[in-house]
């Protein structure tokens, strides 16, 4: 195995693992804030959870981008051909 393949594998793992940290923390904060808001104002639960879902999807996209970059490195790496 050459150095380029080794570097691709390591950087794919690093991309996924570090890319998961930020979205995990921010999704935790978003859910905590939404729980707080629902506890204070239960009648607004519908609107809050709808907005929460859309926001979570937006945040999660960052992690998905990292996953796609990792997959590109592993399966479609132009340098390894």
């Amino acid at each position: 195995m050459n150095w380029l393949a080794l570097a691709s594998i390591i950087s794919a793992a690093v991309a996924v693992s570090f890319g998961a940290i930020g979205p995990a923390l921010s999704e935790g904060r978003a859910v905590a804030a939404a729980m707080d808001a629902i506890a204070r104002q239960p009648e607004a639960a519908n609107t809050i959870s709808r907005t929460l879902f859309v926001g979570l999807a937006m945040i999660e996209t960052m992690a998905i981008y990292c996953l796609v970059i990792a997959l590109l490195l592993l399966f479609a790496n132009p340098l390894l051909k």
Partner: peptide, 13 residues
């Protein structure tokens, strides 16, 4: 593009 990547990434993963 992000709509595409979001759906693809979630289902594919």
């Amino acid at each position: 593009f992000s709509l595409l990547v979001r759906l693809f990434g979630n289902v594919m993963s």
